[in-house]
Design a protein around this nucleic acid. Sequence first.
RNA 1: GUGGAUGUAGCUCAAUAGGUUAGAGCAUCGGUUUGUGGAACCGAGGGCUGUGGGUUCAAGUCCCAUCAUCCACCCCA
Length: 432
Amino acid sequence: MKKKILQTQPYKGTKDWYPEDLQERNFIFDTWIKVAQRYGYEEYDTPLLEEASLYRVKSGDEIANNQLYSFKDKGNREVAIRPEMTPSLARLVAKRKNELTFPLRWFNIGKYYRYERPQKGRNREFFQLNIDILGVSEISAEVEIIQYITDVMREFKAPKESYELRISSRDLLNYLFDEIIKVEKEMRKKLSRALDNYLKMEENLFKAYLEELGLNREQVEKILGFLNWEISDLKNIQNESKGAKQLVELFEILDRLNTPSVVFSPSIVRGLAYYTGIVLEMFEVKQGERPRAMFGGGRYDNLLEIFGKEKIPAFGLGWGDETTLNFLKYNNLLPQYSNNIDIFVCLMDNKLLTETLSLTSFLRSKDLNVLQQLKTIKLSKQIKYADRKKIPYIAILGEDELNKGVIQIKDMNSRNSFLIKKEDIIAKMNGS
RNA sequence: GUGGAUGUAGCUCAAUAGGUUAGAGCAUCGGUUUGUGGAACCGAGGGCUGUGGGUUCAAGUCCCAUCAUCCACCCCA
C-alpha cells in the first residue's frame, strides 16, 4: 500500500503565520486597539459560528449563498462560519437593546472566512477590525470615525500622500438617480457598479459602457458631470439633497480639523447592501499605479430591522489585515522583528544546572525575559546561538564565578563582559 | 464562477535539442583542539522536480488531468 504524503501548504486561501509574520500582524492589531481605546471604544466578541440564516435574510443575495462557508452540524442545524461582523453585531445589540447605554462605541478584531477566489489582498481566511458607533445619527459620528482612521494612519507613520480617504454619500447617489437622470431600480444596480469602476476605466470606454446599459447621451453627460462634482458644487443643491448637505457639513468640519488626505469622491458606492448615508473607502496611493482599495465603511441606519426591532442609527467600518499589511510593507513602515528576549543564560556544566536555573528564576522574577540554555554544549556555540537570536546580554555562571559569588554578564553589542553580584544586574542593565 | 501566466532544496535560481547519480548561492547544522559570537576556510544534511496518469529505450524537460500560487474579470456583505 502506498503511503499518502501530505502537503505542507496550507488550505487554499489561507496562510501560516510564523513568529515574524505574527509580530507584523500584532503590530497592526495593537495599533488598532490602542487608538480605539483612546477614543473610548470597548472591545466585544462573537462566536465564529452562526446560524446560516443570519446571513441569508437578505434573500436573493447570491454572495451570501456562494461565498458563505456553511454546513449542517450533527443536530442538522445549518451553520455558517462568519463572513463579516455586522449581522452578529446587530444580533448582540438587538438582544440587549433595552439595557445598553447608547451611544455605543464598540470594536472587535476577528477572523473571517469567505469562499472566494484568492488573489492579492484577498484570502479565504482574513482578519478584520470592526469599529462602530451606534445611536448617533448626527454627522459627528462620521467625524469621530474618520478621526480614528486618521489617528491610526498617524500611528502607522504613514505619509499623507501614501493614502487617500475617499468619501461620498448614498443619499447623494439617490439624488442623482431620482432627480438628475431619473432611472429605475434595475438600472440603479447596474449603474452603481459602473460608477464604482469609473476611476479604473478610460473615459471613452466608460461612456460606451453606460450607453450599452441603455442610457441616452444626455444621461451619460449628466453622470459624467456628477462624477466631476466637487464640494463647492454641492453647496448649490444643499436644500434639495440631504446627501449634499451632509457632505458639505462633513467636509467643513474635516477642513477645520485639518484632516489630512480626505477627498470628496462621487464615484464611491460600496457594495449594495445596507449602507444608507455617508460611505467611505480608504485607498493606498502608489506612484505611477492606480490606487488600490484598503478598506471601507459607511452609515447603516437600518441595522436592527432583521430582528424586528426599532432602527438604530449606526456608522462603522471594517478594516482588513491583508491590505493593511501590503500597505505597510510597501511604505516600509513595519517594525523590525524582535523576539523581546533580554538575556540569555548559559549552562556551563550539568553539575551547575540548579544554580543556573535559580539565577534564571531570579532574573525572571525581576521581569526580565530570559532564555535558558538547557544542555551543556561548547560555550562558543551557546554565544553564537544568543547572537543569532540577537539577544543583547548573556549571563555566565561557571565554577569560577560561583566561587567568587558573582555572575559574568556580557554585553553583546559592545562585546565587553564584567563580573557582578546578581542583585546588581538589573540596575547595571538599566543604567548601561 | 470566467480568462491568462507559473510550479525544481527553507529562499533566489541553474540543468545544452528529451540522455549518466537534478546543480549553485544564501540560509541551517557540524568542524577548524577543550570558558567567549559576527569573518574566513573545510564539511554535512536537505529534492518522490506540486500530485496523478500518458508518450518514449529514456521525462524536470513533451501530452492530458488535477492541485496550488500569481494576474485580470466577477464580486467585495
